[in-house]
Amino acid sequence: MRTRAKICGITRSEDVLAAVHAGADAIGFVFFEASPRYVSILRAQELARSIPAYVSIVGLFVNADQDEIIRVVDQVPLDILQFHGDETAEQCRQIAQHTRRRWYKAIQVQPDVDVVPAILQYRQAGASAILLDAWHPELKGGTGQQFDWSKFPSLEIPLILAGGLKPENIEDAIRITQAYAVDVSGGVESAKGMKDRQLIEQFMQGVQRGSAKYESQQSGG
Rank of each mutant, 00 (worst) to 15 (best):
A5V: 15
S13M: 13
D15T: 12
H21F: 08
G23L: 07
A24C: 13
A24E: 09
D25T: 13
A26Y: 13
I27A: 08
G28K: 08
V30D: 02
P36K: 01
R37F: 11
L42Q: 14
R43H: 11
L47V: 09
R49D: 03
S50P: 00
P52W: 09
V55N: 03
V58S: 04
L60K: 06
L60Y: 02
V62G: 05
V62H: 03
A64D: 07
D65A: 02
D65I: 03
Q66H: 01
E68F: 12
I69N: 00
I70H: 00
R71K: 12
V72Y: 06
D86L: 08
T88H: 03
C92N: 11
R93S: 15
H98V: 15
H98N: 12
T99P: 01
R100L: 12
W103G: 12
W103D: 12
A106E: 09
I107R: 08
Q108C: 11
Q108V: 09
P111D: 15
D114Q: 07
V116Q: 10
V116E: 11
V116Y: 00
S128L: 06
D133S: 11
W135K: 06
H136V: 13
P137D: 02
L139D: 10
G141P: 08
G141S: 05
T143M: 05
G144K: 05
Q145V: 07
S150F: 01
S150M: 01
K151D: 08
P153L: 11
I157A: 03
P158C: 10
L159D: 08
L159H: 05
I160M: 06
A162T: 10
A162V: 11
G164Q: 05
E168I: 07
N169H: 07
N169I: 10
I170S: 05
E171L: 02
T177G: 06
Q178W: 06
Y180S: 14
V184A: 11
S190P: 01
A191G: 07
K192P: 00
G193E: 08
K195P: 04
D196L: 07
L199V: 06
I200T: 10
E201R: 13
Q202D: 14
Q202K: 13
F203L: 08
M204N: 05
G206L: 03
G206Q: 07
Q208H: 10
A212W: 00
Y214I: 14
